[in-house]
Design a binder for these strands. Structure first.
Lengths: 206, 206
DNA sequence: CCTAACTCTGAACGATGTTCAGCATTAAAC
DNA sequence: GTTTAATGCTGAACATCGTTCAGAGTTAGG
């Protein structure tokens, strides 16, 4: 048995609180400690440093994606991949402020390995699999980057985000005629439809 | 004419110094001030805050890509796009630590607008253009993220980076058979060849 | 009962971005 | 030529950040 006094928190609850703070806009050791009724110093009994918390968190987020969708052999290759990618996008975009960390680090973690292995099951050519990963993660990263800039508001629903993009998108029609003409489509870059459209095209070439 | 004393630096030199510091691993207002023989407070006469420096810097970096390659009408559509994408990748990967900022912010800037406009010239369907952007930026972001984790060393040449990836890549063959079998290709994910291969596939579907 | 392992507090340390009063410098106004 | 106003910069300070650590308190094993 463990000797000292009982812990007043557990790593999982700590990660929950950390995720809330990231969603709110800023993860601070002091804020995190306050959220779980601890002193900043006590956090270092749970994780060696802040980076370890972020890593554990992003690994957990990535693990929330449903790998079963990728392995469902009753469906076609493209259906499986598209369905899984949509699920991954939905899961990650629930916490857009955590996405940069995921893209930056967690793809060395064990969870990322499992995702890669499953993807290779559906798409055996590793070059093709990487191309899909690049597209999916790139699209998610670009979408998440946009939300990052906004204030600490809640994540707006998709239709609302697109409408906001559309009304904020004003370009000089003389200098950027093509961009100006495409404004409606450009506003919808962050839509599920655009994500799916691009992914299906990419898959059709692999 | 301007009244007060002569400036002892200029914004451009400041950005040069800032880029050097980013390449070295950490951009600090104090370090930046020291590099141009100033006091931290004086920097705020040149830029309103740190974020403005990063934004200006990323905009300049993006502007270093050769848009002429995209507009060279003597070549086929795919050739133009591939050539430009390779140039953009090379330009950005000269400063991998600055890449996250680019992906995060500069795509609202005026330089990004010009890139988008030129891309629409070569690829008129905006949905197709965005798909290409997602692939190109996603690939660059994933490559850059890997270097970010390394120490403040100089950027290693490609062959060396791939060799390092290969020797660092050890997975359990039982748990991850497909990943294990593909290890050589996976190590080469960050190669110019893989980048081009994926891009050509993507373009072939658009 | 004692000891060793453990958790947590409270205070501190160094580093960060940013602000600001004051001084120095220069061009315009008179 | 003298005054005035604007500008550049310093030096010191502020709040906040991640992190460390001595010590107090708590628990289980010997």
């Amino acid at each position: 048995m463990k000797r000292g006094p009982q812990r007043s928190a557990n790593p999982e609850a700590l990660l929950d609180a950390a995720l809330e703070l990231i969603d709110a806009g800023r993860l601070t050791m002091r804020a995190l400690a306050a959220q779980v009724n601890l002193t900043p110093g006590a956090l270092y009994t749970y994780f060696p440093d802040r980076a370890a918390i972020v890593t554990a968190l992003t690994d957990r987020l990535l693990g929330a994606a449903d790998l079963g969708l990728l392995e469902d052999t009753t469906r076609t290759r493209d259906e499986r991949i598209v369905t899984f990618a949509l699920n991954l996008r939905e899961v990650l975009m629930r916490h857009p402020r955590a996405v940069p960390s995921i893209l930056g680090a967690a793809f060395t973690g064990p969870v990322a390995l499992r995702v890669g292995e499953s993807l290779l099951g559906a798409l055996p050519d590793p070059r093709a699999a990487y191309t899909v990963m690049v597209y999916v993660l790139g699209a998610i990263a670009l979408e998440a980057a946009e939300i990052e800039e906004a204030g600490p508001d809640a994540v707006a629903p998709e239709a609302q985000r697109i409408a906001a993009r559309r009304s904020a998108f004003v370009v000089d029609p003389e200098a950027f005629p093509r961009t100006h003409a495409a404004a409606d489509v450009i506003a919808a870059y962050v839509s599920t439809e655009q994500f799916r459209w691009g992914l299906e095209r990419v898959l059709s070439a692999l």
